[in-house]
Simulated assay, not measured.
Amino acid sequence: MTADRGARGLVAITGANGTIGYACVVYALQTGYRVRCIVRRASAIETIKTGPSVQPYLDLIESVAVPDNAVGGAYDEAVAGVDYVVHIAGAWPMLHLDPDNDIYHPYIRSTRGLIEAGRKSGTVKRMVFTQAGAGLVDSEDGDTLGTRMERVLNEAVQVSQTSLAYRPPLKSPHNAYCSAKAQCMTYLADLQASHELPFSIAQIIPGTVIGPSEFCTTSEQARAHMDRQSKALLFDDVAPRYAFGFVHVQDCARIHIEALDERVRGEDLPKWYVAAGTVEEGTDGDKLWNSVADMIERDFAKEVKTGVVTLGRQKVPINMPFRVESSMTEKMLLNGDKIRGLEDSVREVAEWYIQLKRTEEKADV
């Protein structure tokens, strides 16, 4: 994964200090881009620069703070002069957030604002937007979607028409999140199909992002950082409410940055790429979850026996309506390499956590 340093151009990455964002920063630097990190707080860039993987590339990193991405012109300066944009930043639908003012309006306004900033720049060639499986479902269905995985999540999957129709005032953070995602996905897909912009738009639907973090140096930090699926499987934690596929963090980042490459012409872009491991046809959520639980019992038998790992075999996500089929994304962006799904990703998280525990135990002796 070597390339001429910075020769592929300047890419602006919003949410650069987040899980996906930082992994994108690393992969972009390693594959020949310069990176402008867009963060909410200036202090976040200092954290990014402490990352072990970016140390050889510090001279290729610049930054802009955008405290509120929903105000008019928020991104104008941030994307001025860049060649590419990867937009990841966004609010998670936490219960304490106001549905309209903290979730819906910021998503809609920041998306439209970024498009306008790209128009003004005169330099942007392609924008990549992170989306979410939440845009494919109706929030008001509640926990009724089951684990049968009867629907297919591929590059042609359709947004929820009911979520697309919701408007403020919205009922809940989840209602606002599903609605905003469905509307942003449709708005961007229509823009891309119109070919009216001076740049192309690629959208990515990631599954749950799973993987270690190089910023965690203790097992306690690692456990706090883990995604909900890993916590449920390895520590018998709360069953996740939704699962729309699963992806290793490095594969997710690779897909985002490879989607910038204009070897796939704008007119040939799919409606969206799918950043999640393909699940074999005929597999349902319970079967998939139990196969990973079997792997944990087999590969980490000692840790299960001693209680380092507390297997959550019964903590299957409540809603798993989709079976992922991402072969088109693999072919178009990854040279046919397989996207790592739940089993491979959780195995690596377990190895990472257990190694940290062993290191701590040795230090205590």
Rank of each mutant, 00 (worst) to 15 (best):
Q314R: 14
I103D: 09
Q131F: 01
Y107R: 13
M94D: 12
M332S: 11
A180H: 02
G72W: 01
Y107M: 15
I339R: 08
E196Q: 14
Q203A: 04
P206N: 11
C184G: 05
A91K: 10
M149H: 00
S327M: 11
A23K: 09
A176G: 03
Q203P: 03
A243H: 05
Y27H: 15
V324P: 07
S345W: 03
P99W: 03
M149R: 12
T19L: 15
L233C: 06
A132F: 03
A3I: 01
V85A: 04
R41S: 15
S194Q: 11
A189W: 07
Y104K: 13
Q314Y: 09
A301Y: 07
D284E: 03
V71C: 12
P198E: 11
W272V: 01
S43I: 14
K231P: 04
R126F: 06
R347V: 00
V349T: 13
P67T: 06
A156I: 00
V26N: 04
A165F: 00
D344F: 08
R8A: 13
V346L: 09
G211A: 09
F199K: 10
L260T: 04
A23H: 10
V274G: 00
V365W: 07
A193K: 14
A78R: 02
V349I: 12
H248G: 05
G51N: 14
R254Q: 15
T31D: 06
V159N: 02
R126L: 10
L97G: 05
G266W: 02
W289K: 00
I201G: 10
S121C: 14
L97D: 06
R263Q: 11
M127Q: 14
P106D: 10
Y27P: 09
A42G: 12
H174W: 07
N154R: 00
F246V: 02
V279W: 01
C178P: 01
R254Y: 00
R151A: 13
P99C: 06
S163P: 09
E262Y: 00
V279R: 01
Y242T: 10
D76V: 11
N154G: 05
R41G: 02
C184N: 14
H96N: 14
P212M: 10
D83R: 04
A23C: 05
V292M: 01
N175E: 08
I88G: 09
T162F: 02
T278E: 02
N319K: 02
M127V: 13
N154A: 03
K231I: 05
L10N: 05
S200T: 14
Q55S: 13
Q250V: 12
R340P: 00
R313A: 15
T218G: 10
M94F: 15
A275L: 06
V238R: 13
V365T: 13
I48P: 10
Q30F: 04
V304M: 12
I103M: 09
A117N: 12
W272C: 07
F129L: 10
H174Y: 08
P240K: 09
G307L: 07
G51M: 11
L188S: 03
T130N: 06
